[in-house]
C-alpha cells in the first residue's frame, strides 16, 4: 500500500472525498448566504434552519405521502422557498433600512422558533431516510471506493452553484437584481418591482439551503438541530471567501471542506476548529476575505 506522509493512500483519498462532499454542502449553503447578504444586506441566521427544513421536509413527505427522492429534490426547496418569502414579507421587510445587526437578531429568533417547534414534535435523536435504490452501491476507482450517491452530491452541488453564479452575474435578471439593490428607487422608476425582487431573492437563497438539505437527507442524520452547527461553519466560510462574493463563497466552500478533510487525516483533534483558525489567519492578512472587495 502506498503511503503519503505516513498515511495510507486509501485513507487519505477517503478523507479527501469526504472533504469534497462536505465542501459541496458548504458551497451550496454559503452561496445562499452570500446572495442574501450581498444583494439584500441581510445576515440570515435562519439559514441553518432552512437547510434543516429542507431535510426534514424530505423525510416527512416520504414517510407521510411516499414522495420519492426526485420529487422531494424539487418540492422541498420550493416549499422552503415559500416559507422564506413569508419570512421576508412579514418580518424582514419591517426592519429594512435599520442596522444590519437587527436582521441577524431577527433571523436568529426565527431559527430558534423553527428548531424548537420541530424538536418538540420529532425529538433530537434523528430521523432515518433510506438511500434511494438507484444510488445504492458504488464504483471502485482503483485507489478508492466511490459510492454513487456521493458522486451525485458533488455533481449536483457543482451544477447548482455554477448555474446560480451564472444567473446572478451574467444574465439580465441578475443584472436587475444587482441594480435593484444598488439603487432601488431608480430601478423602481424604471418599472421594476423591487420589493417583489427582494422577496424572491431571499426565497431563492433559502431554496439553495433547502436543496442542500435534501441532498444531505440520505447521508447525514436528519434532526431539527442539524442546521445549528453547520450554520456557524458556513458563516466562517462566507467570511473567508469575502462576504457577499458569490464566486468566492463557492470556491471557499469546497476548499474548506478539503482543508477539514486533510486535517482529519493528519491531526484529528483540530478538524472541527480548523476552519475558524483559517478564518482568523485570513482576516489578519486579507481583512476583506480571499475574494472580497474593499468596502
Amino acid at each position: 500500500m502506498s503511503m503519503i506522509f505516513g498515511v495510507p493512500m486509501a485513507v487519505l483519498s477517503g478523507q479527501l472525498l469526504i472533504g469534497i462532499i462536505n465542501g459541496a454542502f458548504y458551497a451550496l449553503l454559503s452561496l445562499g448566504l452570500a446572495i442574501i447578504f450581498g444583494l439584500l444586506k441581510i445576515i440570515n441566521f435562519a439559514h441553518g434552519a432552512m437547510y434543516m427544513l429542507g431535510a426534514m421536509a424530505t423525510v416527512i413527505m416520504f414517510d407521510a405521502l411516499d414522495v420519492n427522492y426526485w420529487v422531494a429534490l424539487f418540492l422541498a426547496p420550493v416549499l422552503v422557498g415559500i416559507v422564506g418569502v413569508f419570512v421576508e414579507y412579514f418580518l424582514l421587510r419591517r426592519i429594512a433600512g435599520q442596522d444590519h445587526i437587527y436582521s441577524l437578531l431577527l433571523t436568529f429568533g426565527v431559527a430558534l422558533i423553527m428548531q424548537g417547534v420541530l424538536t418538540n414534535i420529532y425529538g433530537v435523536s434523528g430521523l432515518r431516510y433510506a438511500m434511494p435504490d438507484m444510488f445504492k452501491g458504488g464504483v471502485n476507482l482503483g485507489f478508492m471506493f466511490m459510492p454513487y450517491y456521493r458522486a451525485w452530491v458533488i455533481v449536483a452541488a457543482l451544477l447548482v452553484c455554477f448555474g446560480t453564479w451564472f444567473m446572478v452575474e451574467k444574465t439580465k435578471l441578475g443584472a436587475y437584481l444587482r441594480a435593484g439593490t444598488e439603487d432601488s428607487q431608480l430601478m423602481q422608476g424604471f418599472g421594476i418591482n423591487v420589493p417583489l425582487l427582494v422577496s424572491l431573492t431571499y426565497g431563492f437563497g433559502v431554496m439553495l439551503a433547502a436543496f442542500a438539505g435534501v441532498l444531505a437527507a440520505p447521508i447525514y442524520s436528519v434532526t431539527p438541530v442539524m442546521g445549528s452547527h453547520i450554520l456557524i461553519v458556513v458563516f466562517a466560510v462566507v467570511v473567508i471567501g469575502g462576504m457577499g462574493s458569490i464566486g468566492g463563497a463557492i470556491i471557499t466552500g469546497i476548499l474548506m471542506g478539503v482543508v477539514e478533510g486533510l486535517t482529519k487525516t493528519f491531526y484529528p483533534p483540530a478538524s472541527s476548529a480548523v476552519i475558524f483558525l483559517v478564518m482568523v489567519i485570513v482576516l489578519m492578512i486579507r481583512p476583506h476575505g480571499l475574494f472580497g472587495k474593499e468596502s
Partner: peptide, 28 residues
C-alpha cells in the same frame, strides 16, 4: 486585537468564529 478593525456584522462574525475556536478548545 483580531477583530477591532472590522465593522458591524463583520465584527459580529469574527467574534463568533473566535468564540467557536475557544469552544472547540474546551471540547478537546
Amino acid at each position: 486585537l483580531l477583530s477591532i478593525r472590522r465593522q458591524g456584522i463583520y465584527f459580529a462574525m469574527v467574534t463568533l468564529a473566535l468564540a467557536q475556536l475557544v469552544f472547540f478548545f474546551f471540547v478537546q
